[in-house]
Design a protein around this nucleic acid. Structure first.
Length: 655
RNA sequence: GCCCGAGUAGCUCAGUUGGUCAGAGCAGGCGCCUUGUAAGCGUCAGGUCGUCGGUUCGAAUCCGACCUCGGGCUCCA
């Protein structure tokens, strides 16, 4: 009997009888692995465990410990979801159901345009559990296009996928739905459930079970708003009960950090209905934190060679015609208003104003680079369904700058700009960055090829010299120039896109910008749009969630709260507050007309960094008792001088 | 904008099948208590039950429209 030679990921080899499968290989390695195996990768391609291994291949056993394994569990769970829905709703049809971050979804269309309710989710979940308990095997089958169209005759979305795939026209998420090597693959399990699918799947439904259905949503077929709206069910699935519980717990924790909740609890910001959707008002404490953020931003920009400018909130249509906004951005703008026979628009961006400032006089190469900076409030007509607290609103303030420079200055300018960006973000407690470089799009783009190349190289070398991880989005740039976007990762691992650095070869053309070069001739400057926080409001929201409302000392609206133990300690407490205020700290006193425990609790709930308790001992010795936020127990008998010195250190380090 | 869901006091929520269902806790005001570390006691005040319309003898409760919010989709040159 001939043998197969299989190479394992560690480089060792194993011999197995011809016809051996991935499951056989796992069993040959050990019973534990055989039990844990979900799929295998053969020369890097994921396959079902029961498929025969080719001789000479490199095979790796995939278990739930790996991303591939979890991906498979989620994908297979999505199949079971579809099976349950098709069982429960005769006449329902299904579209696609891929694994996603932490889970999966599946899109359906119910007969008569019916929709799912939350109660339905419970019934579906129960049905899914029955399928899982039945431990049905996932069987892989192949068919040619005609057979496949016949098999899925009652399912138009599946047929559309088959037609797309067999014609080679499949794109994006459809590619993963079926084989494109000339045949269609599908999976069968249970009595008659089949689903078009490239696979692989776990061996049987019994390997699943640690899942939860989460919510129902509408989703356009193929993500196109002109296509029918399907009913999407989202779920999460994990390798074991503990991982599922952990995930559900993280969701609860993330909800506790929700900036809208914290904004209300900490009395920072609110959104009264009377203002309109996407429009916030800033209460004193929120405004104080915002001011500290803005002050820091201004200080850094001042030190960084920026010139401060201001511009109005509205301007005549002609400005937006010249800039091109009315051509390509009109849908995102607030509607115009007529005044004295002219048409005015609220500004969706600051750039045309900064261009106008550049144009206000003749510029020489000696004036460049010119870095104009403004905390500019813009108004955008965001669709009602996308508005989300401070994260996506209709009025927000960009920490916006437009840098006008010569083409030759671009590389150096970009390098220092990226350093500057990261340095500012680090000051706010972010140290995990991920960047994206977007290059020239296919088709129409403005600007010379050489300019694109130089600018893109400049962005790339800036990323590399900053030592930043980045991905390249080929062709992802705007028509007017390449860009870098910088994401930060927050305290619970979520990415937020904050900074953007964009080259613009278009606006200088549109406005006919010029500077006089050393040669006495007129030249066109290059423009760089950049924002570090992006939107101050959104940045505040991200910080609020990042810190879970517990702002570091330098940003805390109330830094110290002083509590006299009893009324007789009031005067001493006042003297401590006065001392702290004189040192430049934000300190307040809560008098002894409530029990101490209640006042301590109130201070902790308000997330004040230091709650000081002062009583008779302290009065005699010039000390305080410090309840530092996050500390297990109070620190008694701390001399005021020592406390002040510690605060100063923490302020300096922004910790 | 589209799909689904939700709106009861400043906040968190309870209100059975339409009929003492306008309630609780916290927060707030006042009084008592004078407190050494995460909720002292009492008392008062508050709401057009998102808005408008409809069904009904009677609507927080049922129906419709709208508004706002939430989860998604689309969008974010």
């Amino acid at each position: 009997m001939s043998e197969l030679t299989i190479t394992l990921p560690d480089g060792s080899t194993r011999n197995l009888p011809e016809g051996a499968t991935g499951a056989d290989l796992a069993a040959d390695i050990g019973p534990g692995l055989a039990k844990a195996a979900l799929v295998v990768t053969v020369d890097g391609d994921a396959r079902d465990l029961d498929r025969v291994l080719p001789d000479g291949s490199t095979v790796s056993i995939v278990t739930a410990d790996s991303d591939d394994g979890l991906h498979t569990i989620r994908h297979s769970t999505a199949h079971v979801l579809a099976q349950a829905v098709l069982d429960l709703w005769p006449g329902a049809t299904y579209a696609i159901g891929p694994p996603i971050q932490d889970g999966f979804y599946y899109d359906f269309e119910l007969p008569g345009g019916a929709t799912f309710s939350n109660e339905d989710l419970e019934a579906i979940e129960a049905r899914m559990r029955r399928v899982i308990d039945a431990d049905q095997a996932f069987e892989r089958h192949e068919a040619d296009a005609d057979e496949a169209l016949e098999l899925f005759s009652g399912h138009p979305y599946k047929r559309e996928i088959i037609e797309q795939v067999t014609s080679g026209a499949a794109t994006g998420e459809l590619v993963g739905e079926a084989s494109i090597d000339g045949s269609i693959t599908y999976y069968r399990n249970g009595e008659g459930f089949i689903d078009l699918c490239l696979g692989p799947h776990v061996p049987s439904t019994g390997r699943l079970g640690h899942f939860a259905l989460q919510n129902v949503a509408g989703a356009y077929w193929r993500g196109d708003e002109k296509q029918p709206m399907l009913q999407r069910i989202y779920g999460t699935a994990w390798a074991d009960r503990k991982a599922l519980k952990g995930h559900l717990h993280r969701l609860v924790e993330a909800e506790k950090r929700d900036h809208r909740r914290l904004a209300a609890e900490l009395d920072l910001v609110s959104w009264p209905e009377s203002l309109g959707p996407g429009l916030a008002i800033w209460h004193p404490k929120g405004a104080l934190v915002r001011k500290l953020i803005e002050d820091y931003s201004r200080d850094r920009h001042e030190a960084g060679g920026y010139d401060f400018v201001y511009s109005p909130h509205i301007a005549k249509a002609v400005l937006w015609e010249t800039s091109g906004h009315l051509d390509f951005y009109a849908d995102g703008m607030f509607p115009p208003m007529e005044l004295d026979g002219a048409t005015y628009y609220p500004k969706p961006m600051n750039c045309p104003f900064h261009v106008a400032i550049f144009q206000s006089g003749q510029r020489s190469y000696r004036d460049l680079p010119s870095r104009l900076f403004e905390l500019g409030t813009v108004y955008r007509y965001e669709l009602s369904g996308v508005i989300h607290g401070l994260m996506r609103s209709r009025g927000f303030t960009q920490d916006d700058s437009h840098i006008f420079c010569t083409p030759e200055q671009v590389p150096d300018e970009l390098a220092s700009l990226l350093e500057f960006t990261l340095s500012v973000l680090r000051a706010f407690g972010f140290d995990d960055f991920q960047a994206k470089l977007s290059t020239r799009p296919e088709g129409k783009a403005v600007g010379e090829d050489a300019l694109w190349e130089m600018a893109t190289d400049g962005l790339r070398s800036a990323l590399e010299s900053a030592g930043l991880d980045y991905v390249v989005d080929e062709g992802g740039g705007a028509f007017y120039g390449p860009k870098i976007d910088v994401d930060v990762t927050d305290a619970i691992g979520r990415p937020w896109q904050l900074s953007t650095i964009q080259l613009d070869f278009n606006l200088p053309e549109q406005f006919g910008l010029e500077y006089v070069g050393a040669d006495g001739g007129r030249h066109r400057p290059v423009m760089i749009h950049r924002a570090l926080m992006g939107s101050v409001e959104r940045f505040f929201g991200v910080l609020l969630e990042h810190y879970a409302g517990a702002f570091p000392l330098w940003l805390a609206p109330e830094q110290v709260r002083v509590l006299p133990v009893a009324e007789e300690h009031q005067a001493y407490a006042e003297s401590v507050v006065e001392r702290l205020s004189a040192e430049g700290f934000r300190a307040k006193l809560t008098p002894a007309d409530e029990p101490l425990g209640k006042r301590v609790r109130a201070g902790k709930v308000a997330k004040v960094p230091h709650v000081l308790v002062v009583g008779g001992d302290d009065m005699a010795n010039g000390t305080v008792g410090d309840n530092a936020r996050g500390a297990e127990a109070p620190e008694r008998d701390l001399p005021v001088d020592e406390f002040v010195a510690r605060l100063a250190v923490a302020m300096e380090s922004k910790s």
